[in-house]
């Protein structure tokens, strides 16, 4: 399974514009970064906020993100990644790193009452599909056990480790890990033209 990904048949304008913007950054054109920032910072800030839940931290990470975008622009490969996913992934990875390193400083992990609700992320069923790719992913998530699909969503949106997810769900970490790996395998199969 190579890098076959979403066949974006229509090179839609927004996407083409972002690709061009990233390339111009790679060529050292500072104005391009500012345009890119104008077009995408609200999205990326939303991502940082979602993971970090703290404005100051999110602002910090957002700033680092665009500095990283400027530095890494030459590595962007539009054959392999869609530009907004590439940008948001940089933001999300940095936000998760920030989360991990701040968790290290807090000797006790931030644990929300580790039992109670065995709900990872509710609302999954209320999500409306935004694009074809999103619809396909929702459909495949819908084929998992609801609880396990919710865990995938929670992991993605909150950047929780296996341990933290396991605590939240009140299951042993090993169980969480095997649930998740099974979910990943099934998602992969489903998204790759499987059922």
């Amino acid at each position: 399974m190579e890098s076959a990904h979403a066949p974006s048949e229509v090179a839609d304008l927004a996407r083409a514009r972002l690709v061009a913007g990233i390339r111009r950054c790679a060529a050292g054109e500072r104005a391009a970064l500012q345009e890119l920032y104008r077009d995408t910072s609200a999205k990326l800030y939303g991502v940082c906020l979602r993971i970090l839940g703290d404005r100051t931290e999110a602002e910090d990470v957002l700033q680092e993100t665009y500095i990283a975008v400027w530095r890494q622009a030459a590595r962007f490969d539009p054959q392999r990644a869609s530009p907004i996913t590439w940008l948001a992934t940089i933001a999300r990875n940095r936000a998760i790193d920030r989360l991990r390193s701040s968790a290290r400083f807090r000797s006790s992990e931030p644990i929300e009452a580790a039992n109670e609700t065995a709900d990872c992320a509710p609302l999954a069923s209320e999500v409306v599909a935004r694009s074809q790719e999103h619809a396909a992913l929702l459909r495949c998530l819908g084929e998992l056990e609801p609880q396990q699909a919710d865990c995938v969503r929670t992991a993605f949106f909150e950047g929780l480790t296996y341990d933290a997810l396991a605590k939240r769900m009140g299951v042993p970490p090993g169980t969480m890990k095997s649930w998740m790996r099974r979910s990943l395998m099934r998602l992969r199969g489903c998204l790759e033209g499987g059922a």
Partner: peptide, 22 residues
Amino acid sequence: RDVAAWSERLGPLLEEIAPVSP
């Protein structure tokens, strides 16, 4: 390549995140 492929697979979830002006 695997990481890039997974980013594309899971990336569409990002569409659910509402933009917030920094």
